[in-house]
Design a binder for these strands. Structure first.
Lengths: 206, 206
DNA sequence: GTCTATAGGGAGATAGAC
DNA sequence: GTCTATCTCCCTATAGAC
């Protein structure tokens, strides 16, 4: 904790804020802590952001930008259904563990914010969710259209929960975790053993 | 919000606290709010609980008790693999939506608490998680033993995420949702259509 | 078991110098 | 763009009467 960022300025503050929001939630994070992590004083935060609430919204906006970017970079090149879904699952997990703390804030801090703050972020979330609905419609065969949003919510639930227990420095790689999740989502657990994904290892505690 | 409980006393305080913690998280919830919802003054809270932290731990302890109770009541009567898992998925969803706000606090409020508070609850969580590991070992065929905890985490992620979007008063019943989740977990999404689960309907917003 | 009163601390945010 | 100093508010928790 309390690691001073290399470069201050607006983006340094934004990243320090994201890390604190992820670790402690919105309410438990103080502007003074964010300032200390950024290497400046609390009052200086207000030169970059009008309020703690605005700072939080800026963090979540950046988180969505990272997610949409990663989604776009997968591109339509991978065409077969299963591999295409796998590529997007891997990209989503990448935004949680490899592309800074901004996306993780959506998972761990979003619901710790007051409802009025959450409402300001919902519109940008919708865009990302629509991309996934479209993707599932094109890769999942058999499921009726009206159930796709619900299947997406279950897949998001499984993917996003990893932020609470997966250790990216453990035995299992993100590639293996993505393969496991994509395979489980598409084919379930009873048909196990048709593919081998290597060893899986969650953190010590739940 | 701010609904005054019918009966005060220790359990009234506990339930009011659980509701607030679920809705706002640990840090954003004040002892004054809990007192107001319970129909007493803030100072009176401290007659029942030594601190806000103790009150929070008591809520989570009760949440685990509800979960273990529900798990036990399913019993070993349902013997076929798929139906047995379905019964436990249904029971777990029941604790989230039908048995008071205590279990929901584990999903929405647990990670909003300071780490020292979370650590006090981890031991009681372990018990419930072990039951599920045992259940999956007996109902899921094919998966290697060392991957079962990871599959459990994915299933928990999917089940627990429902607290963020499922509307128990909507078109879909909890029975249908449980069937959908159990079927998806065991058989995936590509073999869809072999069973019909009725209409699924999440809330308006994500 | 609940109350009034209050201690003691820390929060978000602003004013104005440099 | 960052600082020091400070305002105002509300938090958890305690003391002691009833």
């Amino acid at each position: 904790m309390s690691v001073v960022a290399d470069a201050p300025g607006r983006h340094g503050v934004l990243e320090a804020a994201a890390r604190r929001f992820v670790a402690q939630g919105y309410a438990a994070t103080t502007v003074r802590q964010i300032a200390e992590d950024s290497g400046i004083k609390a009052a200086s935060i207000y030169h970059h952001f009008a309020s703690k609430e605005d700072l939080f919204v800026a963090v979540l906006d950046e988180g969505i930008r990272v997610m949409v970017d990663a989604f776009e970079q997968v591109g339509p090149s991978t065409q077969r259904g299963d591999l295409r879904l796998l590529a997007h699952v891997r990209a989503h997990l990448g935004t949680l563990f490899e592309h800074g703390p901004f996306t993780a804030a959506h998972v761990t801090a979003f619901f710790t914010a007051p409802a009025e703050v959450r409402d300001r972020v919902v519109p940008v979330r919708d865009d990302y969710e629509r991309r996934w609905n479209r993707l599932l419609r094109e890769t999942v065969e058999g499921a009726p259209d009206r159930e796709l949003p619900l299947l997406r919510l279950l897949l998001f639930g499984a993917m996003n929960s990893t932020i609470e227990w997966f250790d990216p420095d453990g035995e299992t790689t993100l590639d293996q975790l993505a393969a496991l999740i994509a395979d489980q989502f598409l084919h379930g657990t009873t048909s196990w053993g048709t593919t081998s994904w290597g060893t899986a290892s969650p953190k010590k505690e739940s």
